[in-house]
Design a protein around this nucleic acid. Structure first.
Lengths: 143, 143
DNA sequence: GTTTTTGCAAACCATTTGCAGGGTC
DNA sequence: GACCCTGCAAATGGTTTGCAAAAAC
């Protein structure tokens, strides 16, 4: 579980200034359970209430992504979204229904990449894996 | 290697009408070696020469994607691009430098997905894997 | 002949940028 | 006090849509 403090700390450690808008956005992001769009944050009453502008939301998300506190993902629909994430883990299983995401470590993917390198001759230096499905809660009908 | 005929055939088989613009675009797409953006097609002199409009390019790409003749991918930069692809193979290794893409089959990913299902409890029903690196030609400096 | 497709232009939407003022270190 | 960050508003760039004419079946 990530707390607001974690996100703030990460921003600070990376040399970003801890401003009101950034703290507020970090806090809102920290309590998100699933993925969210920039538009979701912009629409958040607290964001509007604090007078935080669109641009700041995008810039803050960029900062959070830069420090690995969130990651931008591409939904099957093609939309862009963000999810909180641990900098060490780089893959996610995203629930189609509720949007909750679980972090997943390598889980053997490195071997798959090596196999693909061998077969194709490409020197692979990066990859993106996104998995979609239903989380346990959504499988049993609970939301 | 996919020929224009393949693409046309696929569109036809799926109930799409074979129109001039679609044939022309299928032909241009068929000869593409790497990934391309919608903008690349729009900028193609033949497209301009035939008076094919932006909207038609997007609509045709949508049709081609619907029949599995091309797939829309997300570049590391966040840009959208398309690559030709075989409906059976669903992963790609894209060259960072020249954009050429190689199709890759499962290569063990299914096992990885199963492992992730076990660990997370998610019922995984889809995934997207994109690999990036350098193709053999680009590794040795040739373009 | 009916239905789909097209080109055009306008509409849209998400995201970015320029800039002067304000906040943080 | 120097530099970073913010809000605003305007600009941007990619993609979609409404519509009447044209083409395919």
């Amino acid at each position: 579980m990530q707390t607001t403090v974690d996100l703030d700390t990460r921003l600070g450690a990376a040399g970003y200034r801890l401003t009101g808008p950034r703290r507020a956005l970090a806090s809102i992001v920290a309590e998100r359970d699933g993925h969210f769009r920039a538009a979701d944050l912009i629409a958040d009453p607290r964001v509007a209430g604090l007078g935080i502008g669109r641009a700041t939301v995008f810039r803050s998300l960029e900062a959070l992504a830069a420090v690995g506190a969130v990651e931008r993902i591409d939904l099957p629909s093609g939309d862009h979204a963000y999810i909180r994430c641990d900098p060490a883990h780089h893959h996610h299983v995203v629930c189609r229904r509720c949007g909750r995401a679980a972090n997943v470590d390598d889980a053997g993917l490195r071997g798959v990449a090596a196999e693909i390198e061998r077969r194709t001759g490409y020197a692979i230096d990066g990859h993106r894996l996104e998995l979609f499905g239903l989380c346990e809660a959504c499988q049993v009908g609970r939301s």
